[in-house]
Amino acid sequence: MLEVRGLCVRYGAAPALWNVSLTIGDGELVSLVGPNGAGKTTLVNAIAGVHKPASGQMTIDGRDLMALPAHRFCESGIALVPEGRRLFARMSVRENLEIGAYRVAARIEREAAIEGVCALFPAVRDKLDHPAASLSGGQQQMVAIGRALMAKPRLLLLDEPSLGLSPLMVHAMFGAIRDVHAAGTAVLLVEQNVAMALDIADRAYLLEEGRIVAKGAASDVRDHPDLRRAYLGATEQ
């Protein structure tokens, strides 16, 4: 469904992505791994419309994304769980979820969708009327995922959802991602936790210094020498 071809992204004059190509099929779970500063967030944000690429192509179901203004990316069924969650801190949890269902199409079913989020993350139910800022890190991550699910996405972009969470919470988070995927939603998962990310994924990409250096079935990427180098290079002699 998503096709990215020859994407180049810059921050001012500094290039962050070079000629990146990536595809995600309907309902597929794809992991994007790579060391810190590789450009994973940059790529995910470009796909969500948060940061405009300098050049390249992006299409979803053949529809051109490059020409769209930021607020129209979600019409194509893309929803983002951004790095660091970026909840609307001063708004209540319920209001955050309602922003997720801002689009008219998603808005109609928003009460049922809030119920769905509470079913996936029972801890959220008691917090609906609390300010988002008052929640724990794990609960905030649940709300960030819930907010994206409220948009009824066909492609969910998850940027480091396990960052800063306790091992127990990480486990719960991966369980939820598996559930969302099982329900038919395509997922692009960015993770520092490479083992778990490759475990859960159908396919994977390895990004290093703004370039895709390996891609293929998750099991192949796991055994790829570049992966070992990317993560162990500094310590392996």
Binding site: A48, P69, A79, R86, F88, M91, A151
Partner: peptide, 24 residues
Amino acid sequence: TRLGRALRALAEDAPIAAAFGINA
């Protein structure tokens, strides 16, 4: 109101609000 919520979301984090369809 929906408009009011959208405005508060934009004030807090405009790029993320836009990613959910709010026209800044």
